[in-house]
Amino acid sequence: MSALAHVPASAGKPAPPPVRRGRSRLLPYLLLLPGAAWLLVFFALPLVQLASASLYDPSGSLTTGYAMTWAFGNYPDALQAYWPQFSRSFLYSAIALVLALLMGYPLAYAIAQKAGRWKNLLLVAVVAPMFTSFLVRTLAWKTILSDNGALVGLLRDVHLLGPDGRLLATPIAVVLGLTYNFLPFLVLPLYASLERLDPRLLEAASDLYASPLRAFAKVTLPLSMPGLIAGTLLFFIPATGDYINAELLGTPNEYMIGNVIDSAFLVRLDYPQGAALSFLLMAAILAIVFVYLRKAGTEEVL
C-alpha cells in the first residue's frame, strides 16, 4: 500500500476472495517460473562463476588454466592497483548526478505539471535519444565538444576557455557525457512521481502559509521522493560502471573502473583481477545504495 492513496480506508473494502484450491494456488509460482529461471541462468549462475573466478590463483594463465586457491588477496591487490580509477568513477558519477538533478528535476516537474498538451511530445523528446545507440550518442558528443567546434569556439571567445583550452579529452567532457547519457533514467521515474502529485496539495500548502519555496520543500519534494530515489539509483549505478564515456570523451587520466575491468578481461587476460574488481564495484555500489535507502528511508521504493 502506498501512503499516497487518497481512498478512505473504510470506503468499499472488497470482500475477501473465495478460497481457491489446487492449480490456482500454484498459479503465482508458475507465473514466477520464467522470470526466476531467467534470473537463475543469466544472473545467479554467472554471478557465482564470477565470484569463484575472483578467487582463482592469480598466477594462473589461460594456457595452463586457473586453480581455485581461494585467493582473497586478489581483492586488496586489485584495490591497491586501481583505487584512483575506483574513486574517480564515484566522483565523476556523483558530479554528473548533481548536474543531472539540477537539469532533470525542473524538466520532470515542467513536463508533469506544466506541459499541458505538450506533455506527450516532451516525453518523447526525453526518450528520443534512446532510440539511437549509446555509442552513436556518445560519438555525437565528440563532435559537439570538438576543439574546432562551435561550442569550444564560443567558450574561447567569452574567455571561459583559454585560447588553447579544450573540452574534449578532459574530465568535463566525461562528466558531461555521463550526465547526458543517463539523464532519461533520472527524468522518467521522477516524471512518474511528479505526475501523480495533486496540484491541490500545493494550493493547500499555499493556503497554509507556505511560500512557493517552502511548499516545494515540504510537499513537492517529499512526495516526489520515490521517483527521486529510483531515478538517482537508475542514474548513479550504470554511470559509475560506465566506461564508454571515459573511453571516447576522456583520456587515460579520466579512465574509470569500467575501463580497467574491460582491459582486465579483454586485453590483459587477468581474469581473477577483473572478477575481483567487478565484485568490488558491485559491493561498493550496494553499500552506497543501502546507506542511501536507509537515509532516505522510503519503503515505498522497494
Binding site: 514466477l32 526466476a36 534470473l39 537463475l40 545467479a44 549462475l45 557465482v48 562463476q49 569463484s52 573466478a53 578467487l55 582463482y56 590463483d57 594462473g60 589461460l62 594456457t63 595452463t64 588454466g65 586457473y66 586453480a67 581455485m68 586457491t69
Partner: peptide, 26 residues
C-alpha cells in the same frame, strides 16, 4: 522468494564451480 531462488542457485553451482578452478585452454 528471492531468498529461495538465490539459495537454490548457490547450492546448484557452488559445488560445481567453487574449488575446482578452470582447465587449461591449451
Amino acid at each position: 522468494l528471492t531468498g529461495t531462488v538465490g539459495s537454490a542457485a548457490l547450492l546448484a553451482t557452488a559445488g560445481t564451480l567453487a574449488g575446482c578452478g578452470t582447465k587449461g585452454a591449451q
